[in-house]
Amino acid sequence: MRLARWLYDRIKAQYEHLPSDETVDHVIAANGYTFTAEGRRFG
């Protein structure tokens, strides 16, 4: 039962972390993405 709880906690942490503003900003910067004022990907 402890393993199931541990796995659940890890999955939940990733689920909450991945869509965070900080993570999204990091991915955008790391990949050199640029966007127009309307929010469309540029370049």
Rank of each mutant, 00 (worst) to 15 (best):
H17C: 01
G32W: 02
I28M: 01
A29F: 02
I28N: 01
A4S: 10
F35C: 11
G32T: 12
R41M: 12
A4M: 07
S20F: 02
R10S: 08
R10E: 10
P19S: 05
V24M: 09
Y33M: 14
T36I: 04
D9H: 06
A37M: 08
I28W: 03
Q14G: 09
L7E: 09
A30N: 05
Q14F: 05
R40K: 15
E22Q: 13
A29N: 13
T34R: 07
R40T: 07
T34L: 03
G39Q: 03
D21A: 14
R40H: 12
R5N: 09
M1C: 09
G43F: 07
D25G: 00
A29G: 06
W6I: 15
E22P: 01
A4P: 00
L7Y: 04
D25M: 09
L18P: 00
I28D: 02
F35N: 08
N31G: 11
G39A: 04
R41H: 06
E38G: 12
R40V: 05
D9P: 00
Y33F: 13
M1F: 08
H26A: 15
D25C: 07
R2L: 13
I28F: 02
A4D: 06
G43C: 10
F42D: 12
G39D: 04
V27H: 02
A37L: 10
T36C: 03
F42R: 14
E22I: 07
R10M: 10
L3F: 06
L18T: 10
E16F: 04
V24N: 03
A29K: 15
E22C: 00
L3E: 13
A13E: 11
M1P: 10
R5W: 06
S20H: 03
A30G: 07
I11W: 01
H17D: 10
T34A: 07
A13H: 05
A13R: 13
A13T: 14
A37S: 11
R40E: 12
A30Y: 04
H17S: 06
H26C: 00
A30S: 12
G43W: 09
P19R: 08
H17N: 05
P19D: 07
Y8R: 14
M1Q: 10
T23P: 01
E16W: 01
G32Y: 01
L7H: 07
L3I: 15
S20Q: 03
V24G: 00
Y15H: 09
F35I: 00
D9Y: 02
P19C: 11
G32Q: 04
P19A: 06
D25N: 12
A37N: 11
A29D: 12
I28P: 02
L3A: 15
Y8I: 11
A30E: 11
T36G: 08
V24T: 09
T23H: 06
E22L: 08
R40D: 11
D9G: 08
T34F: 01
Y8D: 08
S20P: 04
A4N: 07
Q14H: 04
Y8T: 13
E38M: 08
L18F: 03
F35H: 03
L7T: 00
R10W: 05
T36W: 02
L7V: 09
T23D: 02
Y33W: 10
A29M: 06
P19W: 03
